[in-house]
């Protein structure tokens, strides 16, 4: 099955297309990367560890960012427990 989300990165931005809803979203590249990781099943501590390793951010920043993004992605229908 093809991925439910399609990503198009340009510089520091990314356009994401949701094949289920048909909606398109413009995200900062970092936020889109996090979304990509979430949809690949990388969550919680693993996700935070990846962010700290690959980007220059602290543990607290990473925790806050991932939890707020997860919430907003859920409300946008970009992630959902029933299809991830």
């Amino acid at each position: 099955m093809p991925s439910l989300l399609a990503f198009q990165f340009w510089d520091d931005e990314c356009v994401v297309y949701n094949r289920l809803s048909g909606d398109t979203h413009l995200l900062p590249a970092l936020h889109a990367e996090i979304l990509q990781l979430i949809t690949e099943g990388i969550r919680g501590d693993n996700l935070i560890a990846r962010l700290i390793a690959e980007h220059a951010i602290s543990h607290d920043e990473a925790t806050e960012l991932t939890s707020s993004l997860y919430k907003s992605y859920k409300s946008l229908g970009l992630v959902d427990s029933s299809w991830n």
Binding site: A6, Q8, W10, D11, V15, L26
Partner: peptide, 29 residues
């Protein structure tokens, strides 16, 4: 204009983006 913003604006101005769906997204990209 950034390419991301330009894509979003184009899609907003497309009459049938919802019909073309994923293919439309690839075409715009």
């Amino acid at each position: 204009l950034s390419k991301g913003r330009a894509s979003m604006n184009l899609i907003e101005n497309a009459f049938n983006f919802n019909i073309l769906g994923h293919q439309g997204f690839e075409m715009v990209s």
